[in-house]
């Protein structure tokens, strides 16, 4: 960011803030006046003790200091399909400043029943490109770093280094086991989620806990029961939202995490079980 005239900034806030909120039209004026990006403007506003009005309903749950902390955080979302679409949407609205979104796929017709980023008009186009355009529409302060690749043991350390949290939103067991290994190597917590039909699982794995290896220890090959049950619209929304909440708490160092345990979600019987995994 270029040098900022703090007197000019003070004058601006005294004339344009309502209480401690800066509305979007006034934020646009600020960006124009001093020649900064939306993300830089968010940062300046919060450093000055004000809050971009876009975040006002985060308040009292998230302080201005914490909102600034979220802006400076970087989260990798591996997979931009069912779970990933919701996780990206929620983290962008929450105000996480940098999202590294990773998926090698393009949208296909069978994605339309549940994948938030898929539309009739973007069939055949890349999922990470859709993530970029969606995030830009809902929160232009968020910098999206698209990676149209498959994360594996060969490239994982490069792709996932420098992030604060990794979100598992992939659709296969092999990929998840690799992801846990990579997160262990780069020493980053992994927020795990998996879905099948009415059912889901979610957890938070700190480096070295190896929960995923225990969860899938009996796996040898193939898909889970999602190959029988498919996935409806609501299961990824539920499990993806649990994952977004875990990410928020990891970033802010708050609350109780689902570590060394998983939450088993059964939307058919509406039962939620907290299962210790040791």
């Amino acid at each position: 960011m270029k040098n900022i005239d703090h007197e000019q900034l003070k004058d601006f806030f005294s004339g344009h803030a309502e209480g401690d909120l800066v509305s979007w039209p006034n934020q646009l004026k600020l960006m124009d006046l001093i020649g900064v990006t939306c993300s830089e403007a968010d940062e300046l506003i919060m450093q000055s003790g004000f809050l971009p009005a876009r975040y006002q309903r985060n308040r009292h749950m998230i302080s201005i200091t914490q909102q600034l902390q979220l802006l400076k955080s970087r989260v990798a979302v591996v997979g931009c399909g069912g779970l990933g679409g919701y996780v990206i949407e929620e983290l962008a609205r929450l105000g996480v400043g940098r999202l590294r979104v990773i998926d090698s796929d393009v949208f296909e017709e069978h994605n339309l029943n549940r994948q938030l980023l898929s539309t009739i008009t973007n069939l055949g186009t890349s999922k990470v490109a859709a993530a970029v355009s969606r995030v830009t529409e809902i929160n232009p302060a968020v910098k999206v770093e698209p990676r149209q690749v498959i994360v594996g043991r060969d490239n994982g350390v490069d792709i996932l280094s420098g992030v604060d949290v990794v979100v598992d939103a992939i659709d296969n067991v092999k990929g998840r086991l690799d992801l846990e290994q990579i997160c262990h190597q780069v020493e980053v917590p992994l927020v795990y989620g998996a879905i099948a039909g009415w059912f889901g699982q979610v957890g938070c794995i700190k480096p070295g806990q190896g929960t995923m290896q225990k969860l899938y220890a009996n796996w040898t090959a193939g898909k889970g029961i999602e190959s029988t049950f498919g996935n409806p619209s609501f299961t990824p929304a539920v499990v993806g939202s649990f994952q977004a909440a875990e990410v928020c708490k990891v970033l802010l160092g708050q609350g109780g995490l689902l570590d060394e345990r998983i939450l088993s979600v059964d939307l058919l019987q509406m039962q939620f079980d907290d299962i210790p995994v040791q």
């Binding site: 998840r176 998996a194 220890a217 009996n218 889970g224 029961i225 999602e226 299962i275 040791q278």
Partner: peptide
């Protein structure tokens, strides 16, 4: 609460939890 494999012998008062493989995203 501890991961086991299929060959494990059970003892009196054990609690066994069985989950299907859930792998979708």
């Amino acid at each position: 609460s501890v991961h086991v494999d299929l060959q494990r012998q059970l003892a009196d008062n054990d609690v066994l939890a069985i989950f299907p493989l859930v792998g979708g995203g």
